[in-house]
């Protein structure tokens, strides 16, 4: 067995996807800047995209790629709206600290 195999198993891709997703979750939970939180969400979406494409390769079908395409579209739309919301929140509250935005309480 050589030091490096010529090709990697598919599960490594999925594992990478899981690691990236978990990092996204960690960022979402630990960061306090609302923009960074938002970027963590994008990271999670990307991780999911990776597993979509890995499965597309595994099943030899293009459908998984279509799915990730749609995810991208939604992510783009979400980025537009989400950043708009962030702008509005900042205008109204002059803060980007997520812990200070707790008007959902009660």
């Amino acid at each position: 067995m050589p030091l490096l195999p010529a090709a990697v198993p598919l599960s490594w891709y999925l594992l990478l996807s899981a690691v990236l997703f978990s990092l996204g979750v960690a960022g979402f939970l630990f960061r306090k800047n609302i923009i960074t939180v938002f970027m963590s969400i994008e990271l999670m979406l990307n991780a999911v995209n990776l597993s979509f494409i890995a499965f597309s390769y595994h099943l030899k079908q293009v459908d998984g790629q279509i799915f990730s395409f749609f995810v991208m579209v939604v992510a783009a739309a979400e980025a537009a709206v989400g950043l708009g919301i962030i702008l509005t929140v900042y205008k109204n509250r002059s803060t980007l600290e997520i812990d200070e935005i707790d008007s959902m309480k009660n």
């Binding site: 979402f28 939970l29 997520i98 812990d99 707790d102 008007s103 959902m104 309480k105 009660n106």
Partner: peptide, 17 residues
Amino acid sequence: LRRLQSGNIRSYAAWVV
């Protein structure tokens, strides 16, 4: 139960996770 409703988004997300 209302003590869980802290209004803190991150705590909600932590519960989801």
